[in-house]
Design a protein around this nucleic acid. Sequence first.
DNA 1: GGACGAACTTGATTTAGATCAACATTGTAT
DNA 2: ATACAATGTTGATCTAAATCAAGTTCGTCC
Lengths: 196, 196
Amino acid sequence: MSVDPPYDHLKKVVSRLSELSDYEWADFSSRWQLTRVAKGDMVIRAGQTEHYFYFVHKGVLRAYVLHDGQDVSVGFSYDSDFSGAYDSFLQQSVTDWNIQAVADTELLRINFEDMMAMYDQYKSVERWGRIFNANVLIGIGRRQIEVRNYSAEERFDRLLRQSPHIFQLVPQKHLASYLGMTPETFSRMRRLKMGK
Amino acid sequence: MSVDPPYDHLKKVVSRLSELSDYEWADFSSRWQLTRVAKGDMVIRAGQTEHYFYFVHKGVLRAYVLHDGQDVSVGFSYDSDFSGAYDSFLQQSVTDWNIQAVADTELLRINFEDMMAMYDQYKSVERWGRIFNANVLIGIGRRQIEVRNYSAEERFDRLLRQSPHIFQLVPQKHLASYLGMTPETFSRMRRLKMGK
DNA sequence: GGACGAACTTGATTTAGATCAACATTGTAT
DNA sequence: ATACAATGTTGATCTAAATCAAGTTCGTCC
C-alpha cells in the first residue's frame, strides 16, 4: 500500500524471508516509526536498555563496545540492514553496546512491545523472526571463524575484497578496530595493498 | 507422555522457550530419533550436507573446522545442548564443519523435512525456533567479543572460571585451539594457573 | 602388561603485530 | 581563510604468543 520509500524498502527486505498478507503488513508496518539521526549522533549508549529494533533505510551505523576504555567496533550497518543492541532488546536488559551514526541516517524503528505483539499475533512475523535470527547467527558464525583463523593481513585483504565501499564510508581507525588491529597496522597494510 | 529420559529431557529444554500442547508435542517428539555415537565417531564431516539437527542428551560433541590443514575447535556441546552444522542444515548446503563425539554420546536427531514441517504446522514450534535462534546468536555474539578483546591468558582464565568441568572432558589440545592458542601456550598457562 | 602412538611438557628462538613517539594531513568550527 | 583538533602516517622498539625441538607421560590396543 505504502509508496513511502523507507516502508517500501522495509517491505521488500521483510518479504524476502516471509510472506505477510496485506492486512498483516498494514498492521506490522504501522508499528514502525521513521527516525533520522545526524552524523555523530548516538542511537543507543552502553548502560541503557534498548527499547527499539532498527532498520537502516539509508546511511551507516557503527556498533562498538568500550573494552577498558578502548573503543572496539563490533559491526557496521548500512542500507537494508537491521540494527540494534540485539541482546538488550530481546532480553530487555542493560546493554554494553554503543551504536552511533557514522553518517546522516534514516531509520525505521519498532519498539519492544509492538514487536512482541506482532510475534504473538502473526505466524508470518514469527517466521520472519525465526529466519532472520537464523541468518544473523550464520553471519556472526562466519565472521567469528574469519576473525579467528586469519592473520591481520588476510583480514585486511578479505574486507577489501568483500566490502571495498566501506573504506570510503568509515574512518579507518574504526575499520582497524573492527578488524582487530591497531590504526598503525591498518595504515601500513593500506599502503601496502592500496598504494599511496 | 513419554517417560523415556532423552525425550523427557528434550521436552524440558524445548518448553523453556515455547509451550507446546500435548498434541503438538506428541507429533513433534515423534519426529526425533534416538542415536548413539561412540567416542571418536564423526557425526558430520566437512563436504557433506547436514540433514539433521541434534539434541545432546548425554555426552560431548566437538565442532571443528580445518583451516589449511589445522584442526580448529569451534565449540563443544554437552548435555542439553542442541548441536549440528547449523548453516548447512538450514540452507541444505555443503558444510565446512566437522562434528565428532569426544565421548560416548546419546543424541536425538530430527531431519530437515520434519523440522520444516513442524515449523509450518505449529506456531509454537516456529516460536521455539525464533527464540532458540535468538539465544544462539546472543551467545555467539558474546563469545565473539570474548575472543576479540581478551588476551590468551584472560581467555584461559575465563574458561577456567566459567566452565571448569570442560577441562576434564576434552583433550587440552582441543581446548587450546578453541581458545585460539597453541597447545604449548595452553600447557604453560595450565601450569601457571592450576599448578603442577 | 609391554609397546607404540598420541597427548602433553618444557626450553630456546622467532615473529607478527602492538606500543611508543614524532610528524603530516584532513576536517571542521569560527 | 585560519587554526585547532582529530585522523592518519611512518619509523624504532618491544612483547605476547607462535614456532621449533627434545623430551616425558598417558592411553589403548595386541
